[in-house]
Simulated assay, not measured.
Amino acid sequence: MADTATPNPTDSPAEHVPSDDGQEVQQAERQDDGQELDADALRAELKVARDQAARYRVKARETTEALKTAKTPEEYQAVADRAAELETELQRERLARKYSLPDALAERISGTDDHAREADAKTLAELFHSRTGGMGRGGLDPSVTPAPSDPGELAASIPRARR
């Protein structure tokens, strides 16, 4: 051990070493004659070591808690898929209300994006609202009495006003 350099008494009695939190910690050196550090220096080193150990324990505890609550990619994807499904269902309901469609037709609205679903809802609304009631297909109303074809009857049906 003759090749290691021994510190000179003119050197500084303490060495500055940065700690994890950015503060400088003084580490006492051993004296030239191989004597142990004094009690105050040992206490200071012990305090620094305990502070570092406490920080590491807190970090380990926080990491353990974070890992316990962490979701796997599969769980995250399942939640994201469910959210997308609920958004699509909500948009179908809104489109059905907007175009006055019954619930049975609201479920049939399809499309890959918002614009496609809206176009499909418009088409369904046109088909649903264009259907006729129970009136027949000729456009004639059966409750109306037909106009007479005889000119005499037609002239008699014209009201005459007295002046």
Rank of each mutant, 00 (worst) to 15 (best):
M1Y: 00
A2M: 05
D3H: 05
A14G: 12
V17I: 14
E24S: 14
E24P: 04
E24L: 11
V25I: 14
Q26H: 10
E29K: 13
R30K: 05
Q31G: 15
D32Y: 02
D33R: 06
D40R: 04
A44D: 14
E45M: 13
K47W: 14
V48L: 10
V48A: 15
A49T: 08
D51C: 04
Y56C: 00
Y56F: 12
A60G: 03
T63L: 04
T63A: 09
L67D: 12
L67S: 07
T69C: 03
A70Y: 04
T72V: 09
Y76N: 09
V79L: 07
A80L: 07
D81R: 12
D81P: 00
A83I: 08
R92M: 12
Y99T: 02
Y99E: 05
L101K: 10
A104L: 03
A104W: 00
L105Y: 08
I109R: 02
I109W: 01
S110W: 09
H115C: 01
H115K: 09
E118S: 05
A119M: 13
D120M: 01
D120K: 06
D120Y: 03
A121M: 06
T123N: 07
H129R: 06
R131S: 09
G138I: 02
G138H: 02
A156V: 13
S157L: 13
I158S: 05
A161F: 15
